[in-house]
Amino acid sequence: MSKSGFNRRQFLETSGRTVVGGVATTSVAAMIAPGGAWAAGLTTLDEPTADVLLRVCRVMFPHDKLGDDPYRTCVGGLDMKAAKDDALAKQMKDGAAALDNGGRKFLKKDEAAQVKALTAIEDTPFFKTIHGHVIVALYNNPKVWGHFGYEGPSFPLGGYLERGFDDIDWLPEV
């Protein structure tokens, strides 16, 4: 049989084994209980540290329509890395403590003040470690893609040839 000329239905039938999978999801997400607490498991970082980091992640990359869960997933990822990296664990704990100045001060500030506090430390290894982690952990999480209107892997669905690759309808005639 020719490899060519599939319509979408035929294509999906022949590629069916790849319909599930294909996306590298982070298993970290499953370890963090949705809805607030860290109850489902911080392995290395303590809760006060994790609480500060959670807020740092959101102030760094604020998406108001996203709940806390994807940000918790980011902190969960840092916790997993810290479990295997003592230096990172110390960096997170010390960095969060310094930001919080021993109390709940960072968390009690308003966003503008929190931005100012982060701006003051944006050249530190602590900040850069978190930034480098979150830019991947937040945006490479398929659970947030719907918020951005991004549909993710298309091969399992036969591509966009018959699913809107050229459906733009607001451009002026040329």
Partner: peptide, 21 residues
């Protein structure tokens, strides 16, 4: 269009990731 034993583009995107087609 199909050519040289290879199928045609289905507009997947992800050209940079290696063409799955």
């Amino acid at each position: 269009e199909p050519r040289d034993g290879r199928t045609s583009c289905r507009q997947l995107g992800f050209c940079f990731q290696g063409c799955r087609m």
